[in-house]
Design a protein around this nucleic acid. Structure first.
Length: 641
RNA sequence: GCCGCCGUAGCUCAGUGGUAGAGCGCGUCAUUGGUAAUGACGAGGUCGGGAGUUCAAUCCUCCCCGGCGGCACCA
């Protein structure tokens, strides 16, 4: 007999060799049905794998996050079997679980097409219906390599050879005797338990082990859920997210466009640019209040300059380089930092001036790989809300902490919820010894704690010269975006010879903090469009009020109303077209105008306006003065409230 | 950059080996209507670009460009 203890503290006796599935059945039929795997003494365990000794057992059910992972992993295996059944000669590689689903990478000379999905899904459903038992076997290393080589699975053999450490048990899971895959597990007791709430989603290319020098594989993505309802919900969420796509809304609302002669470059139309300028004016005020000064540095600088900064050597591939008729070689700036250092170095600096917080809305150009471009999210010409804080080492923590507080306020003002803060620690390839990194990472973590935040450690994610903090926010539908960063830098000030005179009269090197809150205006506006789904709050909306007339008798009065609103700083348009009010209301509502001020003969006579809020069903009739005052108050930027 | 898919009117999309269609939008005219579509008429396309096959290509083939989804990249 063995003793099995449960998460709630209960203990029960079973015969040795009992399986978690049998235990689940002994507790309740429902539990047994919902179970997909188990945790034994904290580690994953198959439901059908016998327990030989005392154990702490937790059953994992299909409706839990961990249970879904097991399901998805099995879905990947069933996909792989289906593909190999239908397309003999296809080699399998790996098939992990990802957010919302799974994928499997295949190697096959012929191309898959999404037209094949239907056939593959049908075969997957057959495999589920067959309810094949999933069997776990432990093999010796040589046996496993020999087996996979013998059946032509070169990639699998390579995984064992290269990735799995000597001495580690090699487990193979099979679907009855039909199909087998190298896998760590755990897996369901049989394929029937997977259910049919899965769907193949898309086809993509991927490199074997992520390296472009390796063979190109074909990746099939799928999604899988505990039941049909969850699958339907997921597909619905995808549709909703697509409706928020900033490229679509940007076109619909006339915010911006891009065209092929300027890949990765944005043509900002009037409304989009208004949004930009509103954000910029807001940021300028926030920065000024936080003790920043603003500068502007050249767009194009000589090659020699970039050689000194190190960019010519390290960043050349991403730079837009141009030649002049006088045979100079110049480059558009990919970053603002070297420029800011020139301003710092101009004349002599005293420790009394530090910290210097030097901001620039710096327009940068980077030659990004063509395949990485994506709407406003990844562009080749962008404007950073950049700043560099030059300070003494003992000022770092305080500056970083103050920055974190500023970031939080700004993100909140744009309706973005703080998710977490990542501390990127020492990468493999790095400058500086361990003592330096210990100290630098410690300072960043400390600063975060000073601002009331426990950072999440992102191992190896730091810059090569120092650690950084990245700020992750959540948008209105729960998607996460990395927005805002602060990076420590001892290297560049040194390399470009920045110094200040200390209290002791000697020269010292300043430390530099690179930081951005929005990142780039382009990307941030893209995020905002998706966060608000194009329905911007009043203070941000490119058009805040549209004055719409009912009859042409009110045209003159409408202009008067608009003039009063504009005088109060409200971005106002007038619609005196010869159209019915229904038509105008519909059109301006679809255009997401926050306020429609309707004026007809009655309002003109009484000096009133009828305000209709976007999405609202009622109108508020009030005097023009009252409307102007109310709207002006509501439209106030959050930093001025 | 690599792999796959896609490219028809301003937008969303249908369609055929015999030089094209819808809805919305746009223009003109009529209509002055009280809170989510007034009606009539009209204009608008080298079917992404180039080459090839064919009596004939928007349709088939190849190359190029671009878009989309991934991968890789993001000192």
């Amino acid at each position: 007999m063995i003793t099995v203890s449960f998460p709630d503290g209960a203990k029960r006796q079973y015969d040795a060799g009992v399986t978690p599935l049998a235990i689940a059945e002994s507790i309740s039929k429902g539990l047994a049905k919902k179970a997909v795997a188990a945790k034994v003494n904290g580690g994953w365990w198959d439901l059908s794998r016998a327990l030989e000794g005392d154990a702490a057992l937790a059953l994992v059910t299909r409706d839990s996050a961990e249970g879904l992972e097991v399901l998805r992993h099995d879905a990947a295996h069933v996909l792989a079997q289906a593909v190999q059944d239908l397309f003999p000669g296809t080699q399998v590689t790996i098939g992990p679980v990802v957010d919302d689903g799974f994928y499997y990478d295949f190697y096959r000379a012929e191309k898959f097409s999404s037209d094949d999905f239907e056939k593959i899904e049908a075969r997957m459903r057959e495999i589920v219906d067959l309810d094949l038992p999933i069997l776990r076997k432990v093999w010796g290393r040589e046996q496993a390599i020999a087996h996979f080589k013998a059946i032509g699975e070169e990639f699998k053999a390579q995984i064992i050879d290269d990735i799995i450490p000597e001495g580690e048990a090699i487990t193979v899971y099979s679907h009855a005797d039909q199909w087998a895959d190298l896998c760590r597990g755990p897996h369901l007791p049989s394929t029937g338990r997977l259910g049919k709430a899965f769907k193949l989603m898309k086809l993509a290319g991927a490199y074997w082990r992520g390296d472009p020098k390796n063979p190109q594989l074909q990746r099939i993505y799928g999604t899988a859920w505990a039941d049909e309802r969850q699958l339907a919900d997921h597909l619905h969420r995808l549709e909703e997210a697509e409706k928020r796509d900033h490229r679509r809304i940007g076109r619909q609302q006339g915010l911006f466009h891009m065209q092929e002669e300027g890949r990765g470059m944005v043509f900002w139309h009037e409304k989009g640019w208004t949004l930009w300028r509103t954000i910029e004016a807001y940021m300028r005020r926030r920065l000024e209040a936080a003790g920043y000064t603003e500068v502007k540095t050249p767009q194009v600088l000589d090659r020699v300059f970039w050689e000194k900064s190190g960019h010519w050597e390290k960043y050349r591939e991403n730079m837009f380089v141009c030649e002049t008729v006088e045979e100079e070689t110049l480059s558009l700036k990919p970053m603002n930092c070297p420029g800011h250092l020139q301003i710092f170095k101009f004349g002599q600096r005293s420790y009394k001036e530090l910290p210097i917080r030097m901001a620039e809305f710096g327009a940068c150009h980077r030659y990004e790989p063509s395949g990485s471009l994506h709407g406003l999210m990844r562009v080749r010409a962008f404007t950073q809300d950049d700043a560099h804080i030059f300070c003494r080492e003992d000022q770092i923590e305080e500056e970083v902490a103050a920055f974190i507080r500023l970031v939080r306020v700004v993100h909140g003002d744009f309706g973005l919820q703080a998710a977490h803060v990542n501390l990127g620690t020492r990468p493999e390839k790095r400058a500086g010894d361990d003592a330096f990194w210990d100290k630098a990472e410690g300072m960043m973590a400390n600063a975060a704690r000073m601002a009331g935040i426990e950072p999440v450690i992102a191992v190896g994610d730091g810059a090569f010269y120092a650690p950084k903090l990245d700020f992750i926010v959540k948008d209105a539908i729960g998607r996460e975006w990395t927005c805002g960063t602060i990076q420590l830098d001892y290297v560049l000030p040194d390399r470009l010879g920045a110094e200040y005179i200390g209290e002791d009269g000697a020269k010292h090197k300043p430390v530099m903090l690179h930081r951005a809150i929005l990142g780039s205006f382009e990307r941030f506006i893209g995020i905002l469009i998706e966060n608000y789904a194009g329905t911007f709050p009043l203070w941000l909306s490119p058009v805040q009020v549209t004055v719409a007339t009912i009859t042409s008798d009110a045209d003159a009065y409408a202009e008067q109303v608009a003039a009063a609103l504009r005088a109060a700083g409200l971005r106002t348009e007038v619609d005196t077209r010869n159209e019915k009010i229904n038509f105008k209301v519909r059109e301006h509502s679809l255009a997401r105008t926050p306020v429609i001020a309707v004026v007809g003969r009655k309002e003109a006579e009484e000096g009133k306006v009828a305000l209709r809020r976007l999405g609202g069903e009622h109108q508020q009739v009030m005097s023009l003065e009252a409307a102007v005052a109310a709207l002006a108050r509501e439209a106030t930027s959050p930093d001025l409230r």
